[in-house]
Design a protein around this nucleic acid. Sequence first.
DNA 1: AATGAATGAGGTTTCATTCAT
DNA 2: CATGAATGAAACCTCATTCAT
Lengths: 188, 188, 188, 188
Amino acid sequence: MARPRSADKRSSILSGALHTIASQGPSVSTAVIAQAAGVSNGSLFTYFETKADLLNTLYLDLKAEMAGAALKGLPTDRELREQLQFMWAHWLHWATSSPEKRRTLAHLDVSDEITAESRKTAHEMMAGIARLLEASRAHGPMQDMPLAFVLALLSALADTTTDFILRDPAKADEHCEAGFNALWRMLT
Amino acid sequence: MARPRSADKRSSILSGALHTIASQGPSVSTAVIAQAAGVSNGSLFTYFETKADLLNTLYLDLKAEMAGAALKGLPTDRELREQLQFMWAHWLHWATSSPEKRRTLAHLDVSDEITAESRKTAHEMMAGIARLLEASRAHGPMQDMPLAFVLALLSALADTTTDFILRDPAKADEHCEAGFNALWRMLT
Amino acid sequence: MARPRSADKRSSILSGALHTIASQGPSVSTAVIAQAAGVSNGSLFTYFETKADLLNTLYLDLKAEMAGAALKGLPTDRELREQLQFMWAHWLHWATSSPEKRRTLAHLDVSDEITAESRKTAHEMMAGIARLLEASRAHGPMQDMPLAFVLALLSALADTTTDFILRDPAKADEHCEAGFNALWRMLT
Amino acid sequence: MARPRSADKRSSILSGALHTIASQGPSVSTAVIAQAAGVSNGSLFTYFETKADLLNTLYLDLKAEMAGAALKGLPTDRELREQLQFMWAHWLHWATSSPEKRRTLAHLDVSDEITAESRKTAHEMMAGIARLLEASRAHGPMQDMPLAFVLALLSALADTTTDFILRDPAKADEHCEAGFNALWRMLT
DNA sequence: AATGAATGAGGTTTCATTCAT
DNA sequence: CATGAATGAAACCTCATTCAT
């Protein structure tokens, strides 16, 4: 496996892609990405076979980071509601404190360069969140819906709430709580 | 008088754009759009000044159609809940029976070719829906949230529900109802 | 000979071409010319077979007008020097008082749409001027040069002088005289 | 280090532009220029940012070459008249022995792609010639004219003379001398 | 391995000319 | 005859990817 030497350079490229895609969308040229990474045009292609490869990698990295952030430190000994709220708050915190990453993720989510396989892998990264959600909806009105449906709703709610927090950061806590309450009412 | 500008040809182009964007995203070339419309490359530009112009027009057409479909025949003499449910059902019906239009709309919604003005106009087209939602949340737990927030939640829920109906059309009614109940629990 | 009906429309087109070429060069589109003429796109082509045809016609019209202006009222009973000076003054007067025509003529003179035949015809229109010049140089130092050479020098001098008059109109008379004196010194 | 930008290729492109513009005018497509240079369509744009950039560069190169040729080896210890004649002869020699360059320069001189700045730079390149001319006309009848006017006359004379030499090369020396004598009579 | 020049297909838009009305 | 929509061939420039250095 011919892994290229410098991990630094690899992550520089990912970081360059992150910044430039956040502001210009996934149609930024590889030249611009390379420049933002402080790397040569051609080097980009020794670390990533194609532009699509780079995009998919970045997509998965960000998804993993997001899922990790949402679950890190989860107080598994507490009540379910508390655990879910913890996850919710951490999700929103990650999203609102990394607006560039979130923006890039949003761009990539609708890009047709992202393969079905990547989307599947990303879905699997949400397993921890899914488990929590599964338990939360177990005895409520959504117990018979496909779990994927409930997960999608959660995602949509989190995303919408994030939008409004970013628009009016002063009310971050308020919106966060209101969003969670809405979610909880939906589930139980 | 010369050959008049043909309304047919204009809508052929819009329709060509609809089909091709649905499957290939808004980056389809104008040449492909023209071909899909059965029109010459150059003709596209006698009906739309630029590609962006075409995209914005299509966007507004679709938004208007969607909003219209959701509210057409609204039984204003019934209970609020019933009205909201009517709107919900018609929205979903439009979205699930016009999957190409919905897909194109989703593409355009995140395209940076759509101007702020178009987005504003599109927002205004949702006024009727907004009014209904305003009344529905008036006395419930979301009464103090920005209406735009609640509207965004509605949109996200509708969109997610549509996804699942398309994935499993046999359960259309079931999903439709479940989605509405979730919405109603959120609002009241 | 199917001469189109309206002479008015024909000259409108020529006039539209005059104005637009003066300001935008001979690469103006036929659509812009037609618009400036208050005529439809297509009509231009019933009066002139091609754009090149229009350009050549305009070229010859302007050349003829210029040559005519230079010689009109020539006092054939006066001394040769006086006649030449009369012609010189009238040439400059035409050029400086019709700057748009002169500018268009300059554009057309270097355009590759103007055919060799047009250039030849234009040359023939200068016959009157040439005759005057021929007489003027007859006994001087340029008596053995090709007449065309002397004519070209005259043209170049007139053109350069016109440039400077337009740049500083207050000194029109002064420049006119200085230019003529230079010419006369060259010839005699 | 990567493959360095090749000076050869750059001058191939300039040379391709020179040949094609000489015969087809400045409206030749970049594709044709690239082909004439034996270079790919896209490569042209790694050496010149835009077509206008290429045109302006070529313009200045040619102007510099012309001015250089006119003054190279100027016998500054000789009489003024002799110096001026030397410059005149070398100018004509360059122009008549590089007819393609001269033709291209004539095309570019009237092209609206050439910027005001380029024209200014080109003007400055004529400083040496201007100085010589200034001295030559100092005590003669043109002493009070703007120097730019006299310079323009010189240019026009040289250009016209060149035309006639190219038309009848056998009489090159004769025309060259006749032209110079005409110039000298004008100046003194 | 790193660099950036080389490539040529492809994108949007313009335009002279034709032709339906 | 007048009109202006229709056409499709360019035009300039960008870009992902390859490859010489």
